[in-house]
Simulated assay, not measured.
Amino acid sequence: MTTGNVTVSLDTAIIDMAKEQAASAGMSMSAWVARTIRSATFEAAARRYAEFEAEGTDMAAWDAENDAADRLAGAEW
């Protein structure tokens, strides 16, 4: 896996919470942040799918009407 660096500015209380969560999971903060972002992305996708299912949305029709940029490319999985 290729990695990169990013700088974000967060409230110090949020940083402390992230450090505590990472430590209690036995992970580096980078790994914990990556896992948390990945989980949030999957959960959001599952909620959207459930909404489509509840509305009876035709996924093929939705795909045809929406830009591919609105969908995950696959590498995220």
Rank of each mutant, 00 (worst) to 15 (best):
D16I: 00
M59N: 04
A75F: 14
A44G: 08
Q21A: 11
A50Q: 04
G26W: 05
A73R: 07
W32C: 02
S24P: 00
A69P: 01
L10N: 05
F42T: 04
G74S: 06
A46D: 06
A75S: 13
A18R: 00
S39W: 06
T41D: 05
A31D: 12
A34R: 04
W32V: 02
A23G: 03
V8T: 01
S30F: 02
R47W: 02
A73G: 15
A40N: 12
D11R: 14
W77R: 15
Q21G: 12
T7L: 11
R48D: 05
F52P: 00
T41K: 13
A13E: 08
R48L: 15
A25D: 07
M17H: 10
M27H: 13
A75D: 15
G26K: 10
A45W: 01
D63T: 05
S30C: 03
A61Y: 01
A18P: 00
A61M: 07
W32N: 01
T2S: 04
G4C: 02
E65H: 10
D58R: 05
A18E: 01
E53K: 05
E53I: 00
D16M: 06
K19F: 04
F52I: 02
E20W: 11
E55A: 14
A46W: 04
E20Y: 13
S28E: 05
T12N: 13
A64W: 08
A68Q: 07
W77C: 09
D11M: 11
A45P: 01
E65L: 13
R71S: 06
S39Q: 15
A64M: 08
T3H: 01
T57I: 15
E20H: 12
A50E: 00
G4N: 02
T2M: 07
I15E: 03
E76M: 08
A46Y: 02
A31P: 02
T41E: 09
D11N: 14
E51I: 12
R47L: 07
D11K: 14
A54K: 15
D11I: 06
T12L: 13
M59T: 07
D67W: 07
Q21H: 09
T57A: 14
F52V: 00
M27T: 00
T41M: 14
R71H: 12
I37D: 03
G74T: 07
W77M: 12
T57F: 01
S9W: 06
A75V: 11
G4T: 00
N5G: 05
A60E: 09
S39C: 04
N5V: 01
D63W: 12
D70F: 14
A25Q: 11
T36S: 15
A25N: 11
T12S: 14
G4Y: 01
K19S: 11
L10D: 01
F52Y: 14
E51R: 12
V8K: 01
G74Y: 06
G56A: 04
G4A: 03
E43Y: 06
V6Y: 06
D11Q: 13
L72Q: 04
A69T: 07
A45T: 03
A34K: 05
A54Y: 09
A68I: 02
